[in-house]
Design a binder for these strands. Structure first.
Lengths: 220, 220
DNA sequence: AGCCATTTTACGGTTTCCCGTAAAAAAAAT
DNA sequence: ATTTTTTTTACGGGAAACCGTAAAATGGCT
């Protein structure tokens, strides 16, 4: 049964709709906040008062503003919240549509549901909350707008190289940057090999194409 | 005075919040739709019935689904609506944060207000509607998250070149692609000059950096 | 330690890209 | 129609990227 819910969502309109959704479901024991840090504070407080939340509904991305926050995003909030209260159920409500990122939420953070901000999101929210109340997980239904998982797994090293390229560092100068950061393979040949490997894995012909793709995937 | 309002917004939750905002303002003569085409239909019908809308509140981007639509986005809706009813006032409500795109809405489409989906969007919506009711335009307040206007104006020709590069066409092969599409300057030197010009205008050192930037700006 | 497997680096040859200059073509002006 | 101006193209040298191969270094393993 779900009685006490915490909403963490910085967009005021989205927050209001979440509240209305809970009203419609007859769940009136909810609080809402517009910052990750406030959410964590409430979770800690509730734990101390032995009156924990049954469900956290959170967005993934929070826009930074003048109030500096410790928790950078929803994922960090989930991680921190679970350290306080491991049995807290979590429903993520976000516009994110990259399948591998959503999959990672289920796999690595064991979230209980994901609803994408999209055409029928209010109806889907209700369905998700009811499923979670029945101790089921709610996976996004097959959605043609979910971007298919990447055909290649980018390592941190890959991302560093690509990131340097996007910053305007030319290939031949990448080795010195790597050495400065004490990153293990730093030879120019290794950089060339890595780039070739990425291009071939994705069937690309140029680095330009590779960088464009990574930007689309929001990898860098 | 604003009495009759049309809401065009595909995200159900956002749509609900817009309705609630109008309720709070005491405006109860509103209709809402989830598709651009439906919005235009209603505007045409209202015109025929001599009961036109006072205000259109619309999103910019509508996700395509199985219902094929004639109007691709909010901008097209605004354009089409104004042809039916030139005095229709328009408030755009979108997550878009590129200043030059928002500016273009005010300049080219003479919209009456813009509210960005962000932290205090519900309060800002109310302020915007009240200002429009008082025959004023509502410009987004100075917002650090509005992306500053680009330092370089990309021509269609620029975009074609960049687009070819992101598709994996190598530079030396761009001339034949241009000739095939019968685009006027098609020499390799012209392509090189253009790229150099773009890089220098933006203080970039490589094409990789240039492409990354354009992807960030959603220009390609 | 010594040996093997793997990874990393160094080196060359080739292709592509970069950039300046000059020739050619096109457009504008007289 | 001819000159002037601007735009486009062609060409060539030099730098960077690409790619295969071989040498060197690294990391287990007995």
């Amino acid at each position: 049964m779900i009685k006490k819910v915490l909403i963490a969502e910085d967009h005021e309109t989205a927050n209001i709709s979440l509240q209305k959704t809970l009203d419609d479901l007859g769940i009136n024991g909810y609080h809402y906040v517009h910052y990750c840090d406030d959410a964590l504070t409430k979770i800690i407080k509730a734990r101390q008062d032995n009156d924990t939340y049954d469900l956290l509904i959170t967005d993934l991305y929070f826009e930074p503003d003048q109030n500096t926050q410790k928790l950078p995003d929803g994922t960090a909030l989930i991680k921190a919240a679970r350290e306080i209260q491991p049995d807290l159920r979590v429903l993520v409500f976000s516009a994110e549509n990259q399948a591998h990122l959503i999959k990672a939420l289920f796999d690595d953070h064991e979230i209980d549901g994901y609803v994408r901000k999209a055409r029928n999101d209010a109806k889907e929210l209700k369905a998700a909350i009811e499923k979670i109340a029945a101790n089921q997980r709610h996976f996004p239904r097959h959605d043609p707008h979910l971007i298919t998982p990447p055909d290649y797994e980018f390592t941190p090293f890959d991302k560093i190289i690509l990131s340097l390229l996007t910053q305007g560092v030319q290939q031949k100068d990448i080795p010195e940057h790597l050495k400065r950061q004490q990153i293990k393979p730093s030879g120019l040949s290794s950089v060339e090999k890595k780039l070739k490997e990425m291009r071939e894995a994705l069937n690309f012909t140029s680095n330009a194409q590779l960088i464009a793709h990574c930007k689309d995937m929001k990898l860098i």
